[in-house]
């Protein structure tokens, strides 16, 4: 059997979506407070989960290619439009810090009963409408500085994929170590019990935490 199967059917889509939803919810990503605590350095779950998932999937794709299970470059690789992707990525980061979710996690927030996730989704639809309304004016930025089609980091830097994977694993290990130290310093990661109380209140800082020294916090 040769992968990918290019199966675009309903049940595969639904089934993979269910698994995606279970993974995001299990990680705690239906909670806006847990998600945004990444950016106050109190909870590194977003960085840990994302980077681990990227490394696992990238390593798996590489293994599938070198083992001959999958033809090279047979999966979709997005093309760089540097200003549109950097600008859009920055707007999503800003909207995440303010609104508490990104598109995928807002679906899980909704599925966890959060009204704020529903309102966030309504805001996203309004944001798309605003983009569509201004599309003629935005169009030059949208198409500017197109990179080579589906370029990978290995092609850009002239480095083989396994070297990139090893560098990513080393970076992730350093980042996770640093994240663990910062989490302890800023009050520890946010758990399910912290975000399911009837009233929000500030959860008590864990022993050894120095949240009070943050001033504005």
């Amino acid at each position: 059997m040769s992968f990918p199967l290019y199966d675009g059917g309903f049940w595969t889509a639904l089934g993979l979506g269910v698994l995606f939803g279970l993974a995001l919810e299990g990680a705690g990503f239906g909670s806006a407070r847990k998600l945004t605590a990444q950016f106050t350095l109190r909870d590194f779950a977003v960085v840990k989960v994302m980077f681990t998932a990227v490394i696992v999937a990238a390593a798996g794709l590489w293994l599938a290619e070198v083992s001959g299970l999958m033809a090279p470059r047979s999966v979709f690789i997005p093309t760089l439009f540097v200003w549109a992707i950097a600008g859009g990525g920055a707007l999503i980061g800003a909207g995440f810090a303010l609104g508490g979710y990104c598109p995928g996690t807002s679906a899980v927030g909704l599925a966890s009963g959060r009204w704020d996730a529903l309102v966030f989704i309504a805001g996203m639809v309004a944001g798309v409408a605003l983009f569509a309304w201004g599309f003629e004016a935005i169009s030059p930025l949208y198409w500017a500085a197109a990179g080579p089609k589906g370029q990978t980091l290995g092609e850009l830097l002239g480095i083989p994929a396994p070297a990139i994977l090893i560098a990513m694993i080393a970076m992730a290990a350093g980042l996770f170590w640093l994240g663990g130290r910062l989490e302890r310093r800023f009050g520890g990661p946010i758990g399910a019990a912290d975000v399911t109380r009837a009233s929000e209140g500030t959860p008590p800082a864990k022993p050894g935490a120095r949240r009070e020294s943050l001033g504005s916090a």
Binding site: G88, G95, F96, G99
Partner: peptide
Amino acid sequence: GGILVGFGAS
């Protein structure tokens, strides 16, 4: 935040 994310994702 949703408006920013919807616009940004487009």
